[in-house]
Design a protein around this nucleic acid. Structure first.
Lengths: 338, 338
DNA sequence: CTGAAAGCGCTTACAG
DNA sequence: CTGAAAGCGCTTACAG
């Protein structure tokens, strides 16, 4: 255990130059005689010198450190977004800290203290005023996700995923197949008693009902908290005689849980029930039958979010970005006409 | 956009005290007259002061920043470990940076430059000498995962997950059910041409074959790279007349992919093929039929890893930890006797 | 009880 | 071409 890290000064002594010269060499931004440069490089090698990024951060007021704040990454789609982001960040010399969302003033304060160069937020549970805390203090902030956030500062840049459009496509698909009794899974880690009309999926779901003059059956809207809850509520819903013929799940994994509940009642997918998921993750691809799902272009999201953020950090003008989604038609949706 | 962050000095001026007093108040570690304290607190509130953690880091040589380095979090088990760790870290005042493993000297150097207080590594692809780079320089390091790492420094503390024991249980279970033709999925992001005997699963697999005097059919060992590859190779394997009666997958999601391949051949699980996964993630719980799987106690891993790491950072003596695993017997394994 | 001062490890404008 | 010096925002031993 080395008790003391080797610093620029140690390198300078070893190489017989001033500390300034060492900086010039490591930063490679000033002329240094070849002979001195060699000596410095050699000393760095021998000593195992690693420039202190924290000191640099303090001096230059730049941490090359980004916060990624989100509610839940325990699904493949989100976890891969984290990995993608880290990849892009790394290429650009940034590091990403992963932060579980906490609706807690104190927590936001500790984050601000960390001197992040920027923040990427994807949340259903953080209120606008807490989100604004970052941008209010001058931290470039990107917001992405599948809902409308209220009272969000103009300083915040959106990377919008067109979940709304994707849901419209999904609903139109079901309507075309003759479905009129369409259930909807709204599973969230936040406690909610009422329908969240700020959720783009809900918005599209209700609009399509309006468009085709279908009355929404409130019992078809499953408000749940996690897989178990979804399973149980689906089990109940599909047990009733007045059961829906189709259902829109939260994401692929939820669709899978729905299918599990449906199967447990000896109903068939898609013969008895059509199911649609979101994200086109591996689970959708390998589901038997193959899941119909709203594809969210993951790579585009992560690169857009990160690139816009870094542009913003570098003071460039940036615009909100919209990312399209598509419906991948699999084998879990079927016509009930005729 | 505030151009300048408010510093301790700003607070001091506003409150009409010296900067030192401000520190005493924020750190609450020295006597300060009530009157001054009030003024400082008021100024902090009014100005929106956030102590600069980077400056503290430089001064105190403590970053409260931990690196978590791993190969792949795109499965629920691992993603949740990341979330769990972040939770525990947060409680203790630390922040976690998520780092994709890169076998690249340069990359490790940039990490070291970041002044992490500690590192948690879980990798199949990083070589011992690269892992050692952290501990060699005095950064407390924890290693966990499912393989034996060669040439790892004595300074590194292991949080061992007993994948070996879990695999033994899984294999014994299959043997009891009469299976002798047991396939094995070894899917990894690393390119491998040969069997990795440093993998605890491989070790248990081969040992059980030895114990029961079963010759290993090399064609039963599927070395693959990702889900698609596993699917295709399983499809091929189970198409052959000499197909195995049981298979041990990498994890639950791989088990799911295997099942998908099996179903595509109109074979039944568990009647024609028994399948075992690892982790007992949601996909296992909601699989129809319910997946038999090796349960890895996720919460224990994350809390053990983090607690041991923080103890180590604080200079306490720590020991390697072993974490037991269990076999959860579901409905995807069935006796073929009689 | 309070505060001036040193110092953490760097960068860089400025003067030679 | 090189280097002394100021300064980033903090903590804390030390002297009053």
């Amino acid at each position: 255990m080395t008790s003391k890290r080797v610093t620029r000064k140690d390198v300078a002594e070893r190489a017989g130059v001033t500390p300034t010269i060492v900086s010039y060499v490591t930063n490679n931004n000033r002329y240094v005689s070849n002979e001195k440069r060699e000596r410095v490089l050699k000393a760095i090698e021998e000593l195992g010198y690693h420039p202190n990024t924290v000191a640099l951060g303090l001096k230059c007021k730049k941490s090359y450190h980004i916060a990624f704040i989100c509610d839940d990454i325990s699904n493949e789609h989100f976890a891969k977004i984290v990995m993608d982001m880290e990849d892009i960040a790394n290429e650009k010399g940034y590091i990403i800290s992963f932060c579980n969302t906490r609706s807690d003033e104190q927590y936001i304060n500790t984050l601000i203290s960390r001197q992040f160069d920027g923040a990427i937020i994807s949340t259903d549970i953080l209120e606008g005023d807490l989100i604004n805390r970052f941008s209010n203090i001058g931290i470039p902030t990107i917001l992405f996700g599948n809902r409308i956030h209220e009272n969000v500062s103009k300083d915040i840049t959106y990377v919008n995923i067109d979940i709304y459009g994707g849901t419209i496509k999904a609903m139109e698909h079901l309507i075309e197949l003759g479905h009129r009794n369409i259930a909807f899974v709204d599973s969230s880690i936040k406690e909610q008693k009422t329908i969240d009309y700020n959720d783009f999926r809900v918005k599209a779901y209700t609009e399509i009902h309006d468009k085709y003059n279908i009355e929404i059956n409130q019992s078809y809207i499953i408000q749940a908290n996690g897989y178990k809850d979804v399973y149980e509520k689906c089990h109940e819903l599909f047990s009733s005689k007045n059961r829906p013929t189709a259902i829109l799940a939260n994401d692929d994994m939820h669709a899978y849980v729905v299918m599990s509940a449906v199967k447990s009642l000896n109903l068939q997918v898609p013969d008895d029930v059509s199911i649609i998921g979101y994200n086109d993750t591996s689970i959708a691809k390998y589901m038997v039958p193959r899941l119909t799902t709203v594809e969210i272009p993951r790579k585009k999201i992560s690169s857009a979010a990160l690139e816009v953020l870094i542009d913003k950090i570098e003071g460039k003008a940036v615009k909100d970005i919209d990312i399209n989604t598509d419906l991948i038609i699999g084998k879990t949706t079927k016509s009930i006409i005729g």
